[in-house]
Amino acid sequence: MDEFPLLVDLHKGAQRQGPGGENETRRAIEWSGLDPQAPLRIADIGCGTGASTLVLASVLPHARITAVDFLQGFLDVLMERARTAGVAGRITPLCASMEDLPFGAGELDGIWSEGAIYHIGFARGVAHWRRYLKPGGLLMASEITWLTPTRPGEIQAYWEGEYPEIDLPSAKMRVLEENGYSPIAYFVLPEHCWLEHYYRPLQTGFAAFLQRNGHSTQARAVVEAERREIELYERFKAYYSYGVYLARKACDDAP
């Protein structure tokens, strides 16, 4: 059995599909300079089950938010949560690949992507998505980032194997600048965004996940991989986290 359906099953019921937090999303919105009174057009790309989407809809009550994910099941969960929160009217779900989006050139005031740009790659994502932003439009992307210039070989090898684009904040800023953005802010997700908001809730679901999937070899392998990632974070959290990058489209493309 392909492990992808198992990963979807494990993560679908979670509040979030990666490290983050409501307060951190609110901080990013505040630092972004987005006007809460403006009728903004924002795309939340790789939104999962909507942890960031719901905050955007709450803090920016006049914005129209397109919640983009390639898994319809995640979007269904998102919209149910949006209805419960009373913000469903501000959100349009869109089942689409982040590599093939239906937006027009210069259509969006902002692109938001928490913990998802790695699916396309940071450099490719910021270059590809720029076309959809208005001049001065905002890009927010959180991206796994080294916090120190050197780190133990074990964690270096693990993350370079999982995501070769992991790098220092200065390198990510350079990628943004080379692709026509002006960086405006950066901060690091704190430990509670990993443990309290992501890993601990994930761990509480392991037993039920294994039971749903008959304790199959593939299901056990998925859980062991997650446990390994958690164990590495607990040992090496001083060396990496997610960086939250905020930048604006510097200018229109030359003709």
Rank of each mutant, 00 (worst) to 15 (best):
L138Y: 13
Y181K: 10
A219S: 10
E143T: 15
A82V: 04
E80T: 07
P255E: 13
T204N: 12
V244K: 00
A85I: 02
T145E: 06
P19G: 13
Q15F: 09
F74D: 06
G153V: 13
V222C: 07
A116Y: 07
A82Q: 06
R41E: 14
P93D: 12
G136D: 13
E24K: 00
L246S: 07
F209V: 13
A51G: 01
G18Q: 11
A185I: 00
I111T: 07
A157E: 14
R124C: 05
F103K: 02
I42P: 08
G115C: 13
P61V: 10
E24D: 14
V126E: 08
I45A: 09
I155L: 13
L56R: 07
Y198F: 15
L54E: 03
W31H: 06
G153S: 15
T92I: 08
V8E: 04
Y186P: 07
G21I: 01
K249N: 03
R200N: 15
D35G: 09
D44G: 06
G20P: 01
Y158R: 15
R26S: 03
I120M: 15
L40W: 03
P149K: 08
W159V: 11
A250E: 07
E80M: 01
T145N: 01
N179Q: 15
G110I: 09
R130P: 06
N213F: 07
A105T: 14
Q218V: 13
R235S: 12
L75C: 07
Y181Q: 07
Y181M: 08
M1C: 04
E107N: 09
V87D: 00
W112M: 10
Y118C: 02
Y245F: 15
P36V: 04
W112P: 00
L71H: 13
A127K: 15
E80H: 03
L176S: 11
